[in-house]
Design a protein around this nucleic acid. Structure first.
Lengths: 105, 105
DNA sequence: GAGTAATATTGCGACTGTGCGATATCGCGA
DNA sequence: TCGCGATATCGCACAGTCGCAATATTACTC
């Protein structure tokens, strides 16, 4: 069975792929970063928004947004004094939905 | 909009939830562990199977299966001298499918 | 019971992630 | 230009993770 376009896909997990995916997973494998991503799934937010919404220090928010930015998972628009973050990787939405769909966790 | 049973669910990511989910993510956020999980998604395997299939040292396989076991993501059946591992958390299948569905990564 | 294949665990050095407070930088309005 | 709100970065101390090699443990087979 060849790996073609629209399949169950549970086939191709070669080492290279695993490495790239693991990086993304490591990126969101942190409570705060996960909450940041989940929040951004629901819409764009400024840093202040996120800080208030999640009830954590501003430096923590910035600090954890940075790796997400570097991974290309979120993007930032710095027009007008504020930094507005948005989800840059649409697949994350599926992933988060998938996680939230996990009952018992 | 209230969070009710069968929904888009992109709603409830409170801190507690994030913490538990992040633990699972950290569990699989490693190239080898991800490949182990992906392999187990396709069926049960012994440690030797996995060692050969993935081309890594036996101690590494055991070492990385351990945390997956502790997290309850995989389970082991030690009947008959061999240790046969299988996927214990069915949701992982969705997750892996979701990851493999990510084009461009 | 000895030998052996299969699996798990340990010790260690190197490296990485984390929280936190302090501080630096940026951009706007007065 | 000054001041200020908004955001990013730094330095540190601490804890956790990784790879690796060695070794321990277990459970068959004879």
């Amino acid at each position: 069975m060849k790996t073609r376009a629209g399949r169950k896909a549970t086939a191709g997990m070669d080492e290279e792929r695993a490495e790239r995916l693991a990086e993304v997973l490591k990126g969101i494998a942190h409570p705060l970063r996960l909450r940041l991503v989940a929040a951004l799934c629901k819409g764009d937010h400024t840093v202040t928004d996120l800080t208030e919404k999640l009830g954590v220090r501003q430096s923590a928010v910035s600090q954890h947004l940075a790796p997400l930015r570097l991974l290309g998972l979120v993007s930032v628009d710095r027009t007008g004094g504020k930094a507005t973050y948005s989800l840059a990787e649409p697949h994350l939405r599926n992933l988060v939905d998938c996680l939230l769909g996990c009952r018992n966790r």
